[in-house]
Amino acid sequence: MTVAFQGVAGAYSEAAAAQLYPDATPAPYDTFDAVFAAVESGTVEAGVVPIENSLFGSVHANYDYLRTHHVHVEVGQFLRIRHCLMAPSGASMDAIEAVHSHPQALGQCQGYLSDTLPQAQSVAAYDTAGAARDVAESGTATHAAIASRQAAAEYGLQVLAEGIEDHDRNYTRFLGIRAGTAKDHVHPQANRTSVVFALRENVPGALFKSLAVFALRELDLCKMESRPQFGTPGQYLFYVDVAGSYADLPLRRALDHLSEITTEQKLLGAYYEAPVPPA
């Protein structure tokens, strides 16, 4: 089995893939879109993508790709993210002029960077491990990267500081995805169901009515995320996570009720998600 992830060796997504699919072979891809396309086409059996971080919020592009690609969520997992500051051998903290990493990682460490390296410029990269690789290849002792300890070992970088994230409860939620329709692939132990919908009318009370279909059946909403509808300014898509399985009759009835007031509705997955690990 082959599992796609975005980034290069040493990426946090690779670590998440190893947890979700321990017997699989990881396959790196340059972009999230490429991961979704590989899963959808059957080039790989599964993919692993981040969807949100506890410090820096959602990975918005992946919400969009869940809707636009013919895939479904089959599993969820929280991964503890421990960031390291790393640089080529011989580097010193007071000489660092630039810190490279993915914007999510830079955001998760912005307090540390502001307090400890106020002189350093933050440079966005497409991947944490890719930033580490690029810094290693450059050999420039004034440039550092934020990535995992695994990435530092992978690319021969010196760890200058560890645990630099702004809070010790820094977790990223990852989703395992496969090709196919969610309704045809309901996990037998599903404890979470995700759906996206667009409201039929943008009128007062429309959003309240959409949420009421769950409240009337005493269904617990875990999360709600809104995204602009492409090409229709002022109109939004709503992504909702509900505790429970699509196999449960009250949840199916809620979604049937919801379809009466929506112009678009897609079940993204009915899957098992492990609880957040203890501190």
Results as ranks from 00 to 15, higher is better:
Glu14Ala: 06
Glu14Lys: 11
Ala15Ile: 11
Ala16Leu: 01
Tyr21Pro: 06
Thr25Ile: 00
Phe36Lys: 06
Ala37Thr: 10
Gly42Asn: 09
Ala46Gln: 03
Ala46Glu: 05
Glu52Thr: 00
Ser58Asn: 11
Val59Ile: 07
Val59Gly: 02
Thr68Tyr: 15
Val71Gln: 10
Phe78Trp: 04
Arg82Glu: 03
Ser89Glu: 13
Gly90Gln: 08
His102Ile: 08
Cys109Arg: 01
Cys109Asp: 11
Cys109Tyr: 01
Gly111Asn: 13
Leu117Asn: 12
Pro118Ile: 03
Asp127Arg: 00
Asp134Gly: 05
Gly139Arg: 09
His143Lys: 15
His143Thr: 11
Ala145His: 10
Ser148Leu: 06
Gln150Ser: 09
Ala151Leu: 08
Leu157Phe: 12
Glu165Gln: 15
Asp168Ile: 00
Asn170Thr: 03
Ala179Thr: 07
His185Ile: 04
Gln189Asp: 13
Ala190Tyr: 11
Arg192Asn: 02
Val196Lys: 06
Phe197Gly: 09
Phe197Asn: 11
Pro204Thr: 08
Ala206Gln: 07
Leu211Asn: 02
Phe214Gly: 01
Arg217Val: 14
Leu221Asp: 06
Met224Leu: 14
Glu225Gln: 14
Ser226His: 15
Arg227Thr: 13
Gln235Ala: 10
Gly244Tyr: 13
Tyr246Asn: 03
Tyr246Lys: 01
Pro250Gln: 06
Arg252His: 12
Arg252Ala: 12
Arg253His: 07
Ala254Val: 11
Glu260Cys: 06
Ile261Trp: 05
Thr262Asn: 07
Thr263Asp: 12
Glu264Gln: 15
Pro275Asp: 06
Val276Thr: 05
Pro278Trp: 01
